[in-house]
Design a protein around this nucleic acid. Structure first.
Lengths: 123, 123
DNA sequence: CTCTTTAATGCAACAATGTTGCGAAACTAA
DNA sequence: TTAGTTTCGCAACATTGTTGCATTAAAGAG
């Protein structure tokens, strides 16, 4: 395993994600960076952060990829993402676990559950 | 509202989706078409089929867009998609509805619930 | 069956996302 | 300070998805 370094880009991007209440896309992050680094570097930093378990991906209803703070494992297991149709925000609802019953013979590894509607601010 | 026509491409694509047990991507559909029509036409046909409520989109865990037979409305409301990590198949589990409890003030419109793991054939 | 209207198609062009290779820069440990 | 490795920026490329425009074809009217 490669040793990872704390570069300016990585630190800044991690801070941006940490300070955001909602999951952000690569381009949203990029626009806050004010040219601190290249587009490709943002992709690579995000991949590294996901690998290192500091950040996890959130897939939006239309297939967009967003990033939020937190470990992928704990995230994939039984928590809900809320997607507001008005303000477009994606929020991790860490405490809410859905329940469901699959037929036998299906082995569950992870789930991705996105609920779409109106958040408290917009409703 | 535009009047829709039953063209060769549309008929063939609808048949492919109907006959498939799992949700297919644009490129998978394309490769079965054997050059019957253009890439752009496939996109347009798929969009039309979704508009007409004959087909619905399924977003995979990594943000890919797949298509499966059936109405979007009925699909978005409370049914699960199963994604097999081995054979990559995406299956609509029409009968299984997850249950969950959101905080007050959240208004739910639709859900997208994808469970990932091993299907019966692969486990 | 032919004509007319309008939807559908193919092509070119474009935009956005995401990846890879490579040389240059920067970090870290000795 | 030096050597080794990681990260960065750039160029290039692949894939997905959309739009405008001229051409083709479906389907109803006569």
């Amino acid at each position: 395993m490669k040793q990872s370094r704390n570069t300016a880009a990585k630190t800044k991007i991690l801070t941006i994600i940490k300070d955001s209440e909602m999951a952000l896309s690569r381009s949203e992050i990029q626009s806050v960076l004010n040219g601190l680094c290249d587009r490709i570097t943002v992709y690579r930093v995000l991949n590294r952060l996901v690998c290192e378990g500091l950040v996890h991906k959130v897939i939006t209803l239309d297939g967009g990829v967003n990033y939020a703070i937190g470990n992928t494992e704990s995230c994939n297991h039984y928590h809900i993402h809320f997607s507001c149709q008005k303000c477009q925000s994606i929020t991790c609802m860490n405490d809410i676990k859905p329940s469901f019953q699959l037929p036998e013979n299906y082995k569950v590894n992870s789930i991705n559950f996105t609920v779409s509607g109106l958040c408290p601010r917009c409703s």
